[in-house]
Design a protein around this nucleic acid. Structure first.
Lengths: 202, 202, 202, 202
DNA sequence: AATGAATGAGTATTCATTCAT
DNA sequence: CATGAATGAATACTCATTCAT
């Protein structure tokens, strides 16, 4: 039952490789990760990796995209299909979404972005357009919907939806640096949402 | 055989070097900064730099310390010597302190910590003990003083002073990634403080 | 289950491949040409190419042979069947033959030989025996025939027929290096032949 | 009397390195020569080589220049300072100069140029401007001087001074490919000069 | 016969660190 | 103290060749 040397799994490879890369980048960061190490984790040779990703940077970008786009898609879908009140949405699916981020690959991606952004300006553009803009727009839609419903007052938060996610980013960073030092990030985020809702409720 | 008039004194060198290193790290990150570049910015030779810092990592740690400790010292001092009410302190010196961070060397240090923490666990320990713990304790003292004063209610924020600085960290990250995309971080931080004060005022 | 109408026959393949290889080598040189590129130009897969040529070097040698042997054959044939006087032969078919070389595959082959000879000593032997010796012998026969005819004197050229083709090789090199810088190689070669004939005519 | 590890010979290094590179390139060609091999022959480390030549290509260009420029300088100088008749110059210093080329580094450089020109178009430009143009101009001056003297007729050679050096290039190539197969290149070149002089003498 | 996925050896270049001067 | 020449380990990427299908 030896592993076959040739597996011919063209379709599965890219995802296997980005998954391997994510785990390697998570442990050592982008710069310190050797391409060969990624290949080893993916169970393939260096050469084959280069068949799918022309450079280490391409691989990096693919990892970012593969992790982050599905999340934004999911958020938008949830928002569009939800029949909940704005408050119920924020306390329910939105809270869950936010709490899920710090422990997930998204956290790793944020770290990678922070560390490497300087050298990949086009990736920053991509990230801005496909992640940040869309995410902020989604937040704004929730808040605006609440205002239209008569649930919420119109406050500064409507123009600064960033306020909503600040503690999520904070938690990501915290987990990254002080993983073992206690902080209940779930509670932190929940308190924050509470506070905001108290502030904006009509 | 006159002594050069403005001969640099030995004691100033370390600070000159860490300052040079900070500016280099700020532009290119730690890994991408060559020791020679730091030496050049400090106006000395590579060899001399190694006389003061045995390795690049030592230099890195010195930079972190030199930037961050004075800030915490200043915060503690301001807090201890202030005769303002808790609210006035938060809206005054504290707000100013927080707004100052994203554009200051502290922002750079945060970025460096995030990018490099993995490879310098002892630095994380140091940072935790001498910066984060002390900072959080200071925040807690302000809040507790407010409670004792009767200004504030005791709420979750008393146990989670992190909530106060979350938007500061967020702003640091934002500036780092999206410097040119508009966000008024001063206003973001001010709104956040407003919201918290509304929440906790008795 | 009809046979494809224009199914390529096995026998044509090697020539198709060497032709593809020649065009690729002409553009990029031997070392810089990837086997895959040759396969693509030949409209086949890499694997199939290796069925016909065991190594890239084998392919290289086949290309050299395929280009150069027919030329020498043609020269010998023309010489043997010609009923022209030696001078008329030199001014007519021979001149045309020489002028044709710089812009032809032979030029490419000369370039390849020069660049790669060091690493393929057996190819040099082959080239020597089957191309250079035969070519020089042919030249010598023309000259000797001229002497026997009483057309020519016996001069140093009879022992150094190389003198006849020196400007051809020169033209090949020139075209290769300075393609765009003007030099009328046809005229160069013609002048040279003129000069030689003036020299050796009885 | 052990070799000192540190020699600190900044001024001598570049020439030592280009000399080492020339010998390595001569043996194996440019592409097949490892930078490390050049360093070894120069008795230094790879890193130090890169202190003087930023890339392998830079090194290549330096080699070309170092070999070829002095020769052209020497030719021009000889020509300008000579008081010989045109014929005497061609039969004397010029013949010697031409005969010296095939066995000298210039031959190696010609080979390198032929093999690598495609990938270094700026080097071809440089070579054209600083070697070929100057060389041809010098030849033309000799011939024109002869015409002015009344020594020579004005013939095609005046416009095609290339004819003079064709056998030199031929000899270079020959030596390169067939070093061991007998050809007296000195005699080849002398015969050629003889022939040309017979042709153009008034 | 034909494919192309898979392998892995081979190499230019960088940069932290040392040490003769 | 001060210099900067010198070292060499480390790593992304290429491409001839193989072989399961």
């Amino acid at each position: 039952m030896a592993e076959p040397r040739y597996r011919r799994r063209k379709e599965d490879r890219p995802d296997e490789i980005t998954a391997a890369a994510l785990s390697a980048f998570a442990e050592n960061g982008y710069a310190a990760t050797r391409v060969e190490e990624v290949a080893k984790r993916a169970g393939i040779s260096k050469g084959l990796l280069y068949l799918y990703f022309k450079t280490k940077e391409e691989l990096f970008k693919a990892v970012i995209r593969s992790v982050v786009i599905p999340r934004v898609d999911a958020l938008e879908l949830a928002l569009d299909q939800s029949t909940l009140s704005a408050e119920a949405f924020l306390r329910g699916p939105m809270l869950q979404f936010m709490q899920g981020i710090p422990g997930s690959p998204v956290g790793i991606v944020v770290r990678l972005m922070i560390a490497e952004a300087h050298r990949h300006p086009d990736l920053v553009d991509y990230y801005w357009q496909n992640v940040v803009s869309r995410g902020l727009a989604a937040l704004q839609r929730i808040l605006d919907r609440g205002v239209e419903n008569g649930e919420f007052r119109r406050t500064a938060v409507n123009e600064l939806p960033h306020l909503l996610i600040a503690p999520v980013i904070f938690s990501v960073i915290w987990k990254l640096l002080f993983e073992n030092r206690s902080l209940d990030t779930d509670r932190l985020i929940e308190c924050h949402i509470d506070m905001i809702l108290n502030d904006i409720k009509a």
